Computed example of a mutant assay.
Amino acid sequence: MELLATLIARHAPDDGMYDMPVPGLALIRYSAPTDRVPVLHHPALCIIAQGAKVAMLGEEVYRYDPASHLVVSVELPLTGQVVEASPERPYLCVRVDLDPAMLGELMLDAPPAPGAESPRGLHLSRSTPELIDAVARYLRLLERRRDARVLAPLIRREIHYWLLTGDQAGVVRQIGAPDSRLSQVNRAIAWIRGNFDRPFRIEAVAREAGMSPSALHQHFKAVTAMSPLQYQKQIRLQEARRLMLSEARDAQAAGFQVGYESPSQFSREYARLFGAPPARDAARLRASPVLAEV
Results as ranks from 00 to 15, higher is better:
residue 5 A to M: 01
residue 102 M to N: 11
residue 199 P to N: 08
residue 229 L to P: 06
residue 206 A to C: 07
residue 276 A to K: 11
residue 211 M to P: 10
residue 86 S to H: 00
residue 272 R to G: 08
residue 151 L to R: 05
residue 143 E to P: 11
residue 220 F to K: 00
residue 125 S to K: 06
residue 31 S to G: 07
residue 44 A to E: 13
residue 189 I to N: 00
residue 228 P to C: 14
residue 262 S to P: 05
residue 105 E to H: 10
residue 156 R to T: 04
residue 70 L to E: 08
residue 215 A to M: 06
residue 2 E to P: 02
residue 142 L to C: 12
residue 155 I to M: 01
residue 207 R to G: 10
residue 102 M to P: 03
residue 170 G to I: 13
residue 245 L to W: 07
residue 294 V to S: 00
residue 47 I to N: 04
residue 130 E to P: 12
residue 228 P to R: 08
residue 52 A to Y: 03
residue 202 I to P: 10
residue 291 L to K: 11
residue 140 R to Q: 15
residue 223 V to P: 12
residue 56 M to R: 10
residue 94 V to I: 10
residue 275 G to W: 07
residue 163 L to C: 13
residue 1 M to I: 07
residue 73 S to F: 04
residue 179 D to K: 08
residue 287 A to M: 13
residue 37 V to R: 00
residue 139 L to F: 05
residue 159 I to D: 00
residue 189 I to Y: 01
residue 283 A to E: 14
residue 41 H to T: 14
residue 121 G to N: 13
residue 42 H to D: 08
residue 281 D to W: 12
residue 144 R to P: 06
residue 156 R to W: 01
residue 60 E to C: 04
residue 27 L to P: 07
residue 206 A to K: 02
residue 256 F to M: 11
residue 70 L to W: 06
residue 117 E to G: 12
residue 76 L to T: 09
residue 117 E to W: 12
residue 2 E to A: 04
residue 233 K to D: 04
residue 180 S to A: 09
residue 74 V to S: 10
residue 18 Y to S: 01
residue 3 L to G: 03
residue 158 E to D: 14
residue 178 P to W: 02
residue 201 R to W: 04
residue 243 L to Q: 03
residue 181 R to C: 11
residue 65 D to R: 11
residue 52 A to S: 13
residue 75 E to T: 08
residue 102 M to Y: 00
residue 105 E to Q: 12
residue 259 G to S: 03
residue 47 I to R: 05
residue 125 S to N: 12
residue 5 A to C: 06
residue 248 A to R: 13
residue 32 A to I: 02
residue 142 L to K: 03
residue 226 M to S: 13
residue 246 S to W: 04
residue 255 G to F: 02
residue 250 D to Q: 11
residue 131 L to K: 07
residue 210 G to I: 10
residue 23 P to S: 08
residue 260 Y to D: 04
residue 169 A to I: 03
residue 48 I to F: 00
residue 149 R to H: 14
residue 253 A to W: 03
residue 211 M to Y: 10
residue 37 V to P: 01
residue 128 T to F: 10
residue 92 L to R: 00
residue 251 A to I: 04
residue 14 D to Y: 08
residue 67 A to R: 15
residue 223 V to L: 12
residue 77 P to E: 06
residue 123 H to E: 07
residue 127 S to I: 15
residue 161 Y to Q: 06
residue 221 K to T: 15
residue 169 A to H: 01
residue 115 G to S: 10
residue 51 G to D: 08
residue 211 M to A: 11
residue 166 G to R: 09
residue 264 S to E: 06
residue 17 M to W: 00
residue 229 L to E: 15
residue 135 V to E: 01
residue 108 L to R: 09
residue 177 A to F: 05
residue 161 Y to F: 15
residue 16 G to R: 03
residue 152 A to R: 03
residue 48 I to W: 01
residue 151 L to H: 05
residue 157 R to K: 14
residue 199 P to C: 07
residue 43 P to W: 09
residue 156 R to K: 12
residue 131 L to H: 07
residue 220 F to S: 01
residue 244 M to L: 09
residue 137 R to L: 04
residue 199 P to E: 08
residue 35 D to K: 03
residue 290 V to E: 05
residue 168 Q to S: 09
residue 241 R to C: 06
residue 182 L to G: 02
residue 68 S to M: 09
residue 65 D to S: 15
residue 287 A to L: 13
residue 170 G to H: 11
residue 279 A to E: 15
residue 144 R to V: 05
residue 169 A to Y: 02
